[in-house]
Design a protein around this nucleic acid. Structure first.
Lengths: 255, 255
DNA sequence: AGTGGATATCGTCATTCTGACGACAACGAA
DNA sequence: TTCGTTGTCGTCAGAATGACGATATCCACT
């Protein structure tokens, strides 16, 4: 019933996993153990297996190559096959499809379709290297000279994240469930590479309806006055919901 | 070199072609001539052939199923194989990838990957039905009971278009090269389903830097005072560029 | 020619939002 | 107690917004 002239293509998933560490945006990269591009750094990813969904393949490859396993709430369908322990302090993440890169001229082995995913997570430590997790690590963005067309995929992922911070609550995906306004501001500053006025940001973030909700808790450690803890308003999707008015990147005001 | 466990999937492209006709948003649909879903309406689309890029497949399927051919400037790579004449008065369009729909549970024939594209164009007449162009036509959005998961793909495409109008010059993709401020406003009103104040919209549209550029021409037909003609500032991509501040949907102000 | 309808464009004004920045609050360290 | 640090609230001028009046310039009709 499917026409014989139709092509059948190998399909890979590649994951652009971003986090904010030490005030800067980082991406999760692995060192390739096999040709092509052996020894080069690349986005974690691999071939979709028969019967899998794209999201299942993305989480499976992430687990196999980096040891990072999905939190229970984000796991879709079957349990991951990796028996590795969950990464330290990694309670939740946000996974969304980025875009698909055409079958031609991107893999020396022939036509391969790649569906890229964007994963945003709070900073967490990686499991000890070894086993499947060969030389996985966080690298500052921008990273260069990645395998395949991963330079472009990474750039697309970073640009998606930058744009979405403006008009969605996606920045909270980089924070743990409870966070301070300053932590949220550091996310914006790291992703955009700009400086934001702490007082105006506080007013804007706490004043935007449908964004932040105080938990009643306060921080206890660190210097200075303790900060109130907030969470994303329950029921609000980090992707779909829209911030009105948006939080605009300051640099673009002069464009 | 590609692992034997990797699956190979048939890949289709589906095109959500939107335009504004008679003040309302319309989508280009075809009637399926073959099973599955024979007789049902569906988005134009079909299988990617070996050697094709995704965009090539999208424009080819569009030409085969609806007779609509790409303008010269938008044609990517090889010429379309359809010898059909170009659609009446259809000078340019905007084509961008929407998203990819996973291989499972969306085609009764088995796992099929579908890469959806979003096409925005000024209103234009369709070629006479016949040949490949079987019962292609414009239908008001929302359309219901489409084949496969095309209801969802259409909804995703419409939502993408609605969101992008706010912070990008994408609305100009629904207009011809030269257009009036009122025509541009009608696009926003049709896509968003809202009413916009003509005077405030004029001030906002003409006052936003990097958006509109007067051509010096004026309209000559129709009742009322002739309107000045504008074009999108040359060099500005309808997708990538960002409007600051954005043009926000009025209904959401109360959210 | 004159009038009226229709559409385009400009102007006004109160309200809200934004960016810059001062002031104070609440902690730990010296 | 004093000081440095960080968080939170206020103030104020300028910009942006929404509502809407006023004027410009066409066509159709008398």
């Amino acid at each position: 019933m499917i026409p014989r002239t139709a092509g059948a293509f190998p399909v890979t998933v590649d994951v652009v996993a971003l986090t904010v560490r030490d005030g800067a945006l980082h991406v999760l990269l692995v060192e390739r153990l096999l040709d092509p591009f052996r020894g080069a750094r690349a986005l974690p990813g691999g071939f979709v297996l028969p019967g899998e969904s794209l999201e299942q393949a993305a989480t499976r490859e992430l687990a196999e190559e980096t040891g990072v396993t999905a939190p229970a709430s984000a796991a879709t369908g079957e349990a991951t096959r990796s028996g590795r322990a969950t990464a330290v302090g990694q309670p939740e993440w946000h996974l969304e499809q980025l875009r698909t890169y055409g079958p031609q001229d991107r893999d020396p082995r022939g036509p391969v379709l790649s569906v890229a995913y964007l994963l945003l997570a709070p900073a967490f430590g990686l499991p000890e290297a070894g086993g499947d997790a060969a030389a996985a690590g966080w690298f500052p963005v921008p990273a260069r000279d990645l395998a395949f067309d991963h330079d472009r995929i990474l750039a697309d992922g970073v640009e998606r994240a930058r744009a979405k911070l403006e008009y969605s609550p996606l920045a909270t995906a980089f924070c743990h469930e409870e966070f301070t306004v300053a932590e949220l501001r550091h996310v914006y500053e790291a992703v955009w590479g700009t400086h934001l006025d702490a007082r105006n940001f506080h007013r804007k973030a706490t004043g935007t309806p449908g964004f932040l909700e105080p938990t009643g808790h306060v921080t206890t450690d660190g210097p200075g006055r303790p900060a109130e803890l907030y969470r994303l308003v329950p029921g609000v999707s980090p992707t779909a919901a829209v911030l009105h008015p948006p939080i605009l990147r300051p640099a673009e005001r002069s464009a």
